[in-house]
Every structure is written in structure tokens, then in C-alpha cells.
Design a protein around this nucleic acid. Structure first.
Lengths: 354, 354
DNA sequence: AATTGGCGCCAAAGCGCCTTGAATGTTGAG
DNA sequence: CTCAACATTCAAGGCGCTTTGGCGCCAATT
């Protein structure tokens, strides 16, 4: 290694040994200077830091990890079934989380877990030790992953909750029950009595809680509960369309729809148009709006009346929770319940008598 | 370490030293047995592999990485500007790529790069050495990242192309020019002469190429080119809606729309409905369809006529290309051009004279 | 019987970093 | 002037794995 290659040539990164020999210092001192240990002279520290920048030195992540025993990385595991590959909600959540990670010097490892292989994937993540903790997406009812992760002693935060599991674990969730209770109540107060629910798959925890909010509101208003008004499934445009189309061809049409996602609502809107009806006048729609940057239900008067809660923010908070667990393992496991905001848009109105 | 903890207790993973002492073998032999080196007796190999499964042994990824000098991980860098956080297209592409990675024993590291910080992020990735190569998303015209990555000597594959850059680099792209040429020609053949283009941001390479396909077809048919018929911007539902609404309030309405994405087209559809027109009869629409699993433009007769090409498949192929570059660094850099399929749906028809 | 050459296995070095324990230089109190 | 106390710096060991170079051993060759 000659002067030539020690200069600021892109791509020719140094390692610690080279940097310290350049500086005429030991690796120990250089390492400590860079990591802000107190036992280094301030002048030396500055000299070292300047050199590090000049030579574009950054510690090898693998070596640091080996030496410290911490990967400085978080895993996100995305459940994947055949119909739903990569829900935009996960993407937005991850975008939020990644802000926290980069701020705190962590990397983000993404793993797709096809259903059926989940167990072995979590085990593998734990034993390969390439992450310090993980975020679990889309919990199911009685989710076996929680027990597994507790056994594996891998720190984790769940985006959502498994209300069937009474053990202690860290989670962040929105108050789905309250959100859908309020949304349903709004529709009832507007005079609607036939309110359809177009929900996500009710094997998932969030969808169950939304349904129970919906049912509670109906019950409280002494309205009949009609199983035929309740749909569940992947929240795609197509499914929203076919569910709504089916409902609108019935002799007794529902006059209101409660839709669990923006994308599903786009299909419902199409069905309403196709039936020659006007949304907000003939038919009311309330959606849950995850406030995805890519599907913005905005404007002075938003298109859809919604219960809104930012998944991106949830991602940021979840990441902070997880890092705090990792850096402070003895503290109590944090939980966080976010409230959704009811926002009146153009898609709701008093019930229309025909 | 006693018998107790050497048994199959979840979370109590062994390391190589423990495993080999359990087996009464040296670490060398155990390592070689597991990695299928030839100089190990077949019986021994079987014995080792069985024990590894039994004790849930998996090599520490960091240690392996340090020793081999290869991270066995690929980085995906997602450009992020304030309006667009995490395009579902990236998500779907990543879902495709991750299949390849897990099959080949690689991990996937995700990094968000806020615009402005990109340079330093790529440098950091290169010098931290936590990945063996990266995938670059959303290339721009004259994209500085290409030169940078070439200097950093970090293997990469670009999803898209920078046609302004004549140097050699690996890319995978769809034939955007041909796709939009064909789509435009279809509309012209149906009698349309006022064809609007609602495009993605033309700072991005793909959008430019689509526009030039559109222009070529117009030119070839001796149709006038009207700059007022061309829109560009983030391909959101909202932007599609406002662009189409604006166009439909003009004295001379376009009778056909070419829309660069499914989500944008949902907004265009809304605008058409709102104007009291019928898609496929009064107004024709052709879209580019990335075949996202979450936004499926399917059915016996798809809703939208489209040029379709699966981004998920592109992701799978891109990953394979990148791994082949990494494992065979001296070979010529691969490139791959995918053709889109023109699929006739319900949104196009002969021009309607009013 | 002596030599060769695989085969099967092992000890030890090294990947790049952090960290422990010790060594050196400096200062101030006694 | 001596010695303790502090401020700086360093050499060396270790993180868990792969890999180089050898070392026995036994069958085959001469």
C-alpha cells in the first residue's frame, strides 16, 4: 500500500489497521476516538475523525458485529400468501421504521415468509444472528409466532395485537375497535340501518377487532345484525368491487358501506358508479384510511369519510420501541395504542329514502 | 455447558465449537462437512449434518461473512422524495427478488435514500461492506449513481436504464418505448386523434421512453403533437384525477387517455365518471399495467386495456442477474429487455363522434 | 519390505473490529 | 525530589467462522 492508494480514491476504502498506521496511532486509540470513548485526547480525536472522513473510512459492519455481538440490524418479516404478495401497508410501515433505523445507525433486513415456512424462517433468523430484533407484521388470532419468538429470546414488536394471547409482549396497534365503532355510529346517526361491512381477512387480528366495533355499534343502536352484510377477504380493488356489486344487486340494498381499506373502497366506488348511484348521496361510504402517501385520500374535503391513522408513523414508533427494548432489555415491554381520527369527507350523507 | 443445555432447547443455539466438541470432531471437519467439501468421509458428513439439524445449528452470519469476505446479502436502495415514500412497484419488485435471494442463501438489506443524501448513502453501503451488491431503482436521466457505483466497484443491476449513459452496466428493463408506441397506435387505429398522455415524472428514465414511444406513433400517423395533452408527475390516483378532470373540461376534449400506471388510471376513471362519460365508449383508456398482485387488472375481459409486464418477475430476474455478476465477476455485464404484452380490455373502443 | 499417494482429519492462522489490562508519560502533592 | 494519581496510548486476545498446510494411516505399487 503506497501513498497513491492511501489518497482519497473512491472505492479504495481503508481498514482500521491502515488508518491507524497512517495516523501513527494504535488501532485501539483510533477505534476509541471514533467511538467517542473518553480516554482519548481531544486533539487526537479530532485528528482521527478528520482522517476518517478524508479516507472515507467506515468500520466493516460484519467485523464490528462479530466483535460487539450486536448486529445493528432489525429484521422485518412479511407474511406472504399466494394472493397477497406485498401489501402497500407493509411498505409504508417500513418506510416509517427505516427513518428511525438510519437515525440510530441500524440496518433493515427484509425477509418474506411464505405461509407454511414461517416457523423455520423465524428460527433461522434467530440462530443466524444477523439481526438484533424483529418486527412482526399482520398478527393472526392465536398467533403461534408470539410464543415461538418468546422462546427464541429474540426481541420483537408486533404491528397489531393478538388479543387471544394473554402473555406479555410488545405491540403497537391502532384502536380498531373504537375506530369502527365510531364509523358505524356515524352512519347510524345519519339514518342508515343497512350497513355493509367489507373487511380484511378475519383470520387477522385487526379485522376481527374492526368487526367487533361494528357489531357493538349496531347492537347499541338495537339494529339487527345481518351476516349477509358482512364480507371478508383480501382488501383489493377487485374484491371491493365484487362484494359491493353483489350487495347492490340485492332486492334490499344496503345504503351504507364500511370498508376496511382505501384500495377496497376504490372498488366499492366503481360498483356504486356502475349501479348508477352517487356516492355520498344515494350511498354512504366510510373507510379506514392508513394514510398511505401513495394513495392519498386528501383535499379540502377528502373524497372518502374515514377513520385515519398513519401507518408510516406507526412504523416509526414501532422501530423506536424495538430499539428501546434492545438497548434496555430489562425494562418492561412497551405497548402503544394509537387512536384513529374520524374525518368527514364527501362520501357520507343522510340516508336517502327511495 | 452441560448436557442439559446441549439438548434441543429452543433459543439455545450452539456455535461451531460446541457442535464439534459434541461430535468429537475438529471445527475444521465439521465446517467442511456442512459446506460439502469433498475431503470428508461420507458417513462423517451425514453424522455432522444430522447433529446440526438436531441441535438447530446455523453458522453465525457475521462470522461467516468476516471469514469469507462475502456478506451473502444484497442491498436494495429506494429513492425517496417527499411526495412519494414507497411506491408499491418497488415493493412488488422486491417481493420477486426476495424469492431468488432466499433460494440462493442471500439476505436482503433495504435502505431508503432521501433525495439529496443518495451519494453518501451509496458510499456508506460500499464501505460498510454489509452487502455484496445492490439493486438500483428508478434511474433518472443522466443518473450520477451509475458512475459512482462503477467507481466504488460495487456490483449492481439497475431496474430500468439510463439511455443517456453509454458506459457498460447491467440493467433489466421493459421496452417502454415499444409498449407505448403500440398502445398509441392501437388508439389511433381506433380512430382517436386527440390522445392525452398521463405520464410519470419525466425526470425518470422510463417515463421519457414512454413519451417517445407515444410521440413516434403520433408522428408516424401524421397526427399533430400537442404539448397541452401531455402530463407528467407522480402517478397517484389524485394526480390522475386532476389531470383528467382538467382535460375533460376543455372545449376540445381528448377522446383517449394513455396512462402510465394502474393507480393513476383509477383517478382517470373517476374523472371520466364524474364528467358523465362512459369509459370504453365515450372515452378510451390504455394503461401500463405492472401486474401488481395487490392491484389486479384482471378478469375474463380486464377492466383496462393495457400493456402488461410483471414487475415481480422483473425483480426475480434482476436478482438472478446480480448474483451471477457477483459469483462470476469477469463475465460480461448482462442486460435484459422485457417486452410488455398488449392486452385488450373493456376500456377501449372506436372513437365516438359527438 | 520399503515407498508412494490418497483419504480423512486436525491445529492454527486470519478475517476486521472492540476491549481488557498494562505501559508510558505528566502532573501535583507531600 | 519522590511517589501517587491521572491522562494517554498501546499490545494482545477474542468474537465464530473458513481455510491453509500438515499429519497419520492404510491400500497399492515396486
Amino acid at each position: 500500500m503506497h501513498l497513491q492508494s492511501a489518497l482519497n480514491i473512491p472505492g479504495s476504502d481503508m481498514d482500521l489497521k491502515q488508518l491507524s498506521s497512517q495516523l501513527g496511532l494504535s488501532q485501539t486509540t483510533v477505534s476509541r476516538a471514533l467511538n467517542d470513548y473518553p480516554e482519548v485526547n481531544e486533539n487526537t480525536r479530532q485528528r482521527v475523525k478528520r482522517a476518517a472522513v478524508k479516507f472515507n473510512y467506515r468500520p466493516n459492519a460484519r467485523a464490528t458485529g462479530l466483535a460487539t455481538g450486536r448486529a445493528k440490524a432489525i429484521g422485518h418479516v412479511i407474511p406472504m400468501n399466494s394472493t397477497e404478495v406485498f401489501n402497500p401497508i407493509f411498505a409504508e410501515f417500513i418506510a416509517g421504521a427505516s427513518q428511525t433505523y438510519s437515525k440510530r445507525g441500524y440496518e433493515l433486513l427484509l425477509t418474506m415468509a411464505p405461509s407454511g415456512t414461517e416457523d423455520s424462517i423465524y428460527r433461522q433468523i434467530a440462530s443466524r444472528k444477523s439481526v438484533d430484533g424483529i418486527i412482526v407484521h399482520a398478527p393472526r388470532i392465536n398467533d403461534s409466532r408470539i410464543t415461538l419468538l418468546q422462546e427464541l429470546a429474540l426481541p420483537f414488536v408486533i404491528h397489531g395485537r393478538d388479543t387471544a394471547n394473554k402473555s406479555e409482549y410488545a405491540w403497537i396497534d391502532i384502536n380498531n375497535r373504537s375506530a369502527f365503532f365510531q364509523a358505524t355510529k356515524l352512519l347510524i346517526d345519519l339514518g342508515h340501518t343497512d350497513i355493509a361491512l367489507i373487511n380484511g381477512s378475519e383470520a387477522l387480528s385487526f379485522a376481527c377487532r374492526r368487526r367487533s366495533g361494528y357489531l357493538d355499534a349496531l347492537q347499541q343502536a338495537d339494529l339487527a345484525i345481518d351476516g349477509d352484510l358482512m364480507f371478508e377477504g383480501d382488501l383489493t380493488e377487485g374484491n371491493g368491487y365484487s362484494a359491493a356489486t353483489e350487495l347492490l344487486t340485492r332486492p334490499r340494498q344496503p345504503t351504507a358501506f364500511l370498508v376496511s381499506s382505501y384500495t377496497g373502497a376504490l372498488g366499492v366506488r366503481r360498483a356504486i358508479h356502475n349501479a348508477g348511484l352517487k356516492m355520498g348521496a344515494d350511498v354512504s361510504v366510510v373507510i379506514h384510511d392508513d394514510d398511505l402517501s401513495y394513495f392519498h385520500n386528501s383535499g379540502d374535503v377528502p373524497q372518502f369519510t374515514s377513520t385515519r391513522s398513519s401507518v408510516k408513523q406507526a412504523g416509526t414508533l414501532a422501530a423506536e420501541m424495538l430499539l428501546s427494548i434492545i438497548e434496555n432489555p430489562t425494562a418492561q415491554l412497551p405497548t402503544r395504542l394509537l387512536e384513529a381520527n374520524l374525518i368527514i369527507g364527501a362520501s357520507t350523507g343522510r340516508r336517502h329514502h327511495r
